[in-house]
Amino acid sequence: MTSCHIAEEHIQKVAIFGGTHGNELTGVFLVKHWLENGAEIQRTGLEVKPFITNPRAVKKCTRYIDCDLNRIFDLENLGKKMSEDLPYEVRRAQEINHLFGPKDSEDSYDIIFDLHNTTSNMGCTLILEDSRNNFLIQMFHYIKTSLAPLPCYVYLIEHPSLKYATTRSIAKYPVGIEVGPQPQGVLRADILDQMRKMIKHALDFIHHFNEGKEFPPCAIEVYKIIEKVDYPRDENGEIAAIIHPNLQDQDWKPLHPGDPMFLTLDGKTIPLGGDCTVYPVFVNEAAYYEKKEAFAKTTKLTLNAKSIRCCLH
């Protein structure tokens, strides 16, 4: 018999989150649709729960009410004593943790798909938090293969000092899905179709896995975050240069030392320094102006996964 890495157990509980950011409308629209008619997301033997994560922000069509829901799922915020004085999103995070967690427990949901849009030209993107997770690498390989020839990129946010504390991190297997470009507060049919297909293929993978299909060893190309880059700023902290036209919409493309990065209003080009080629992502993302992030630098690498098969009882 072929030796293989056996994944822990079959997958039982899956959640699909929309509206973690209330103005990213593809996930909101799909989740609302699936709450009314969820036939397309159901798979035999699998509990799939669509869920609106930040209903107040969705109602106002804004990213958040008090603070970013997708950055506060750490033990400090989840452990705060519940009171009306807490920011709305912290209270909501505790409610979500109660419903789908608790985080880092045996009772937490197996998989959470968190649906997002970006204003950046990132196409279909899967966000991975753990480079050693054979199950998710296999799932992402399946999704990428199923979507081809449509490109699907994998963004690895594993980093020693950049801690995200994402909404989906309460699950055993957290999956971020990011599709763009799409303006905030807008629905685009092409973007919706791409996100819908990503979810379909992900659920198909889980179904095949649960039925005992063995997935042979595989490898995927990923883009691992190195650092986030702020806009150049003046002495008052105001933005002093904008994304250069040569960099705009060039997510995932190589940016070499000396290539144009920013452009000042008086026409001066600010190039990339250093001696390493990087791959920019979230270029000129609207939501990241407040976070002082013009783009993120990534490096390209390959992740390998062992063969996996479900432990059938």
Rank of each mutant, 00 (worst) to 15 (best):
K291C: 09
K60R: 12
W252S: 02
L30Y: 01
H98L: 13
K49L: 09
Y142A: 01
K59I: 09
T167F: 09
L147A: 04
G45T: 09
I41T: 01
F29Q: 15
Y153C: 08
V229N: 00
G273F: 06
W252G: 07
D110M: 02
P216H: 05
N304T: 14
A305Q: 04
F282T: 02
A305P: 04
G123W: 00
R168Y: 08
D204F: 03
T44D: 14
P217T: 06
F282L: 09
L303G: 06
G79P: 11
E40S: 00
Q250E: 08
I72P: 10
Y88A: 07
S146C: 15
N77H: 14
L128T: 01
M122Q: 02
L265A: 12
N77F: 12
E285V: 01
L78G: 10
V283I: 15
T264V: 02
N210H: 06
F295E: 05
G22R: 09
G267D: 07
T53Y: 02
K291A: 10
H116S: 09
I52S: 04
A305S: 07
I270F: 01
F113Q: 03
T44Q: 14
I41V: 10
V175P: 03
G274C: 00
G101E: 06
E40L: 04
G38V: 09
I127E: 01
A296C: 14
F29E: 15
N54I: 01
I65Y: 07
D66H: 11
T167L: 10
F17S: 00
H5K: 13
Y88V: 08
I72S: 14
A57Y: 02
H141A: 06
A305Y: 06
H21R: 09
D259F: 00
C61P: 04
V278M: 06
T2P: 15
H98A: 13
I143F: 05
V90P: 07
F262P: 01
N246C: 09
D230S: 12
V278E: 00
V222M: 02
G274F: 03
Y64D: 06
E84H: 13
V281L: 09
E89T: 02
T53C: 12
L263F: 07
L75H: 13
S131I: 07
L312N: 15
L301M: 14
E227N: 07
I72L: 14
Q194F: 09
I191H: 01
N121L: 02
P254V: 04
P50Q: 05
R63P: 12
S169A: 10
K228N: 10
E106N: 13
E227L: 04
I239F: 05
T167R: 09
P149D: 06
M82C: 14
I220Q: 04
Q12F: 00
N246L: 09
G212D: 00
F282C: 10
L30R: 03
F17T: 06
S105P: 10
L75I: 13
K172R: 12
C218M: 01
H201L: 09
E235W: 05
Q12P: 05
A171M: 02
L192W: 05
V154I: 11
N70D: 15
L303W: 03
G38E: 12
E24W: 04
D234F: 08
H159S: 14
S161I: 09
M82Q: 14
Y88T: 07
P160Y: 09
R56Y: 12
I41R: 02
G212M: 01
D193S: 11
I137G: 01
Y223G: 02
C311R: 12
A7N: 13
I96E: 06
I206R: 06
T167S: 13
Y289I: 13
I112S: 05
I206G: 06
E95R: 12
I127V: 13
L203Y: 04
Q248M: 12
L162G: 15
A15I: 03
I52E: 01
T269K: 06
R71W: 09
A93K: 10
P55Y: 09
L150Y: 09
V58C: 10
E285K: 03
Y88G: 06
Y288T: 15
N210C: 05
H208Q: 15
F262T: 04
Y64W: 13
E129H: 10
E95C: 10
V179W: 05
N77W: 12
I226S: 08
F113S: 02
M139L: 07
G273Y: 07
N284K: 02
K144L: 09
L156Y: 10
H207E: 14
N117A: 02
L150I: 14
G185Q: 05
H5Y: 10
C67A: 13
T53D: 02
Q12V: 02
K103M: 12
F135V: 04
I52T: 05
H33C: 07
D104E: 12
Y289H: 15
A294G: 06
A7C: 09
E285F: 04
V281E: 03
S108N: 14
E214W: 09
I16G: 00
L156S: 04
I96N: 06
C124S: 07
G38H: 11
L30D: 03
S131T: 08
V154K: 05
A287H: 14
C276P: 00
N70A: 10
L301T: 10
S108Q: 14
E290P: 11
P232N: 03
T264F: 03
P55T: 12
N37M: 07
W34F: 09
E24K: 00
G180P: 03
E84D: 14
D104K: 14
T2N: 13
Y153N: 15
G185F: 01
K300N: 01
K49P: 06
I239W: 01
M261E: 00
C152N: 01
G38F: 10
V175F: 00
D190G: 06
L86E: 12
D251G: 05
P254Y: 03
M139S: 01
P55C: 10
E235N: 10
F295Y: 03
D230F: 10
E293M: 15
D107R: 12
A39K: 12
I143C: 02
V31G: 03
D259E: 09
V31H: 04
G176M: 14
K224Q: 10
H244C: 00
S105W: 09
E36Y: 07
T264N: 06
D234N: 11
R43T: 02
L99A: 12
K224Y: 02
G38P: 15
Y64K: 09
A294M: 03
I270L: 09
H201K: 01
F17W: 11
Y223P: 04
H98Q: 14
K291Q: 11
K300W: 00
